[in-house]
């Protein structure tokens, strides 16, 4: 038998394919782990409903757990515990920032346009920034401009 903590530690190795510094655990998309003698069942939920990376992530979870000798891995994707950006861990937020992607501001689950301006620039740390467009290179990123260092940057969108 494996412990849930052990499984989670191994799953730290599975990264978001588009943000390779962020593990699925820190992204907050692993919603349940069920272990019995014969199999490990992992439940995941996508960040955005149409996220094309979910199938890759699912496959990666199976491969990583297989590599630790767990042959019977079952991965389910559902919306029982839907993802929101508050689920990104502190470690994950730090990794995003170091990667150059502004972490999403914490919110009360109602994302208002007001919280999308004055995002802290991951390059210079200034909050003197404006959102240029809520749609970026992937479904989960928006594009911002920093008035201080005059750099364009991306943010992991609050949702």
């Amino acid at each position: 038998m494996y412990s849930e903590a052990q499984i989670l530690e191994w799953l730290e190795e599975v990264k978001d394919p588009e943000i390779p510094v962020l593990s699925l655990v820190d992204l907050g998309v692993i919603t349940n782990i069920d272990i019995n003698e014969h199999r490990v069942a992992v439940t995941m939920t996508p960040t955005f409903v149409g996220c094309p990376a979910i199938d890759y992530m699912k496959q990666d979870v199976i491969e990583v757990l297989n590599s630790y000798g767990i042959d019977n891995v079952d991965v389910q994707v559902n919306f029982d515990e839907p993802w929101n950006s508050n689920k990104i861990t502190e470690k994950g937020r730090k990794a995003l920032k170091e990667f150059g992607l502004a972490p999403p501001p914490k919110h009360n689950l109602i994302v208002d346009i007001d919280i999308l301006d004055n995002i802290e620039c991951p390059n210079c740390g200034s909050n003197n920034s404006v959102m240029k467009t809520p749609f970026g290179p992937t479904a989960c990123r928006s594009i911002h401009f920093c008035n201080n260092c005059k750099e364009t940057f991306e943010q992991f969108k609050p949702l």
Partner: peptide, 12 residues
Amino acid sequence: IAFSSMAQDKVG
């Protein structure tokens, strides 16, 4: 990008 991104959301 906006319309492409909304397309991805809607199809998904």
